[in-house]
């Protein structure tokens, strides 16, 4: 397993998640963010699991791979030219969930900031995993795409359940999926990446694949959430 423990969180990202658009950050809020980040990092017990599988067919309407199929144009596009796929799941663990629930009772400002810190932390865990795997594959002459998750574009969110069953996440990393396709613990990610013999576009799925495209607070201001 590739080790992934978030160190210091990227504060610019945390601020961005909190809706920061260049206003003055009062010293008190700044100190709170540091303290919340510290608590989230200390509660986080990140775990990542993945499987590498062969892709058997890519068509306009979906992708067939060993033991699992994906429907939709967007995933086909994402895996275009890839002979293999990596299915991954990552979670920060249940202690972060507890901390968020508790802070929601005692102090909503902290709850809000911790939520942003935890979102950033799980992203960093995934990035670290992805980068390490990319380096490993590069050494073998292979290229890895970015992450594509259920709910992006036309890949149904319900795919979460199938991915978790396939990866045996409840048993392996303590990650379950609710009837409404929510991941528990909440600060978790499932994703699909492609492996190709030719160079690929690494960037994440991007705005075109996003279901929030029409009503995105970042886009309204000419920004992007993933940059």
């Amino acid at each position: 397993m590739i080790k992934t423990q978030p160190g210091e969180l990227n504060k610019t990202e945390v601020l961005r998640l909190l809706g920061y658009r260049g206003q003055e950050v009062p010293a008190e809020i700044n100190a709170r963010i540091d303290e919340c980040a510290r608590q989230i990092i200390s509660a986080a017990a990140p775990k990542v699991i993945y499987k590498q599988i062969k892709i058997t067919e890519i068509s306009e309407t979906g992708v067939c791979a060993e033991g699992v199929n994906f429907s939709g144009r967007d995933i086909s596009h994402h895996l275009d030219g890839c002979g293999q796929a990596v299915l991954m799941a990552a979670t920060l663990g249940s202690d972060v969930e507890k901390l968020l629930m508790r802070s929601g009772v005692s102090d909503m400002t902290n709850a809000l900031i911790m939520d942003a810190c935890a979102t950033e932390a799980i992203e960093e865990v995934c990035d670290a995993f992805e980068n390490a795997l990319r380096d490993e594959l590069r050494a073998q002459g292979l290229y890895l795409t970015g992450r594509f998750s259920p709910g992006y574009g036309d890949l149904p969110i319900e795919m979460q359940g199938e991915l978790c069953t396939f990866l045996d996440t409840p048993r392996k990393i303590g990650l379950t999926v609710s009837r409404s396709s929510m991941l528990n613990p909440g600060k978790s990610v499932t994703a699909i990446l492609g492996i190709s013999e030719k160079p690929v576009r690494i960037s994440a799925a991007g705005c075109d694949a996003c279901s929030k495209k029409a009503d995105c607070a970042f886009r309204r201001e000419g920004e992007k959430c993933n940059e």
Binding site: L18, G19, R21, Q23, P26, I29, T109, L112
Partner: peptide, 14 residues
């Protein structure tokens, strides 16, 4: 108006 951001709104509310 975007002059303060959400954590400031929350501390004010508290």
């Amino acid at each position: 108006e975007g002059r303060i951001f959400l954590p400031q709104l929350m501390t004010a509310a508290n």
